[in-house]
Design a protein around this nucleic acid. Structure first.
Ligand SMILES: [Zn+2]
Ligand SMILES: [Zn+2]
Ligand SMILES: [Zn+2]
Ligand SMILES: [Zn+2]
Lengths: 144, 144
DNA sequence: TTTATTTTGCAACAATGTTGCAAAATTATG
DNA sequence: CATAATTTTGCAACATTGTTGCAAAATAAA
């Protein structure tokens, strides 16, 4: 992972590449993403940081990161929305997250399985697929 | 589909099989599901019926139908939750919805593709899969 | 019909998400 | 570095969504 100093510089670079001002909140939120090994949901940010963020700022920050292709959303069957860091291939107008997601029923953690490709889906005639989202639930490595 | 009379009787039967009282609200909500060819989200119910339901009753009704295996949830990347009727194989303690879902980017409609099986997913070592959710987005038959 | 049980609707509340705007922070410029 | 231009933040106020307790109403059982 590197030293705290190196991470901070990596984050600054990432923000500047996306033409975003380097601010304290954005830096801290990206740090949280990098430290956590899973997806985060909105309520996590206000807790995880110890310090409490302004809710509005968090909403706006996440939206900005989505727009810039820094993070992506993971579908759920509850009302929460989960977010995870994108890989470097994602950019402002194009997400390239060709991986599936796994949600552990034990620990509740949701992770990106970057090495697992999304499957080909044979749709009925007349349907055109642009994007395929796969979320597998079960028991993860650590909880087994 | 059958006459209105037949549908009402079918609904009564369904409710009684699930050991639920046959009430006006439950009947109307099930009618909406049967009439609509796609998934419904919470806000749909209060509009679609013309008449306005009590919000609390709708929440409780949907939760009851979920518990009894009458409807299932469909994952989304926004905060809304979508629901669709289960096939007859689903029961109180076991859902058997082995199909994928399709969300049209044009009309916004979400439908169950009952004839399309969920794919086999090869997970990394150490992960156990219990359930696989697939949501394909694109352009549907009608919008093509 | 009467009684027992379940369901509903209301009120009150809690949680989540949005908007406008002035103050603060960051970045660009000379 | 100092100043100006731009972007971001935090607050207030509001809107939407979801939850709980409880008495009244509806349904089912006797
Ligand atoms: Zn786990
Ligand atoms: Zn991911
Ligand atoms: Zn369509
Ligand atoms: Zn379905």
């Amino acid at each position: 992972m590197g030293t705290k100093q190196q991470i901070t510089e990596r984050i600054s670079g990432l923000l500047r590449e996306s033409k975003l001002s380097v601010t304290e909140t954005r830096t801290k939120i990206l740090e949280l993403f990098m430290k956590s090994n899973g997806a985060l949901e909105h309520s996590d940010f206000e807790k995880l940081a110890g310090q409490s963020f302004d809710r509005v700022t968090v909403y706006r920050t996440l939206q900005t990161f989505l727009d810039k292709g820094i993070i992506h959303k993971i579908p759920t069957t509850d009302t929460s929305v989960r977010y995870a860091l994108c890989k470097s291939e994602c950019s402002e107008h194009h997400h390239h997250d060709h991986h599936i997601h796994f949600k552990c029923e034990e620990c509740g953690n949701t992770i990106c399985l970057d090495e697992t490709d999304v499957p080909q889906i044979q749709l009925p005639k007349g349907y055109a697929a642009h994007n395929v989202e796969v979320v597998v639930s079960g028991v993860c490595k650590s909880c087994k």
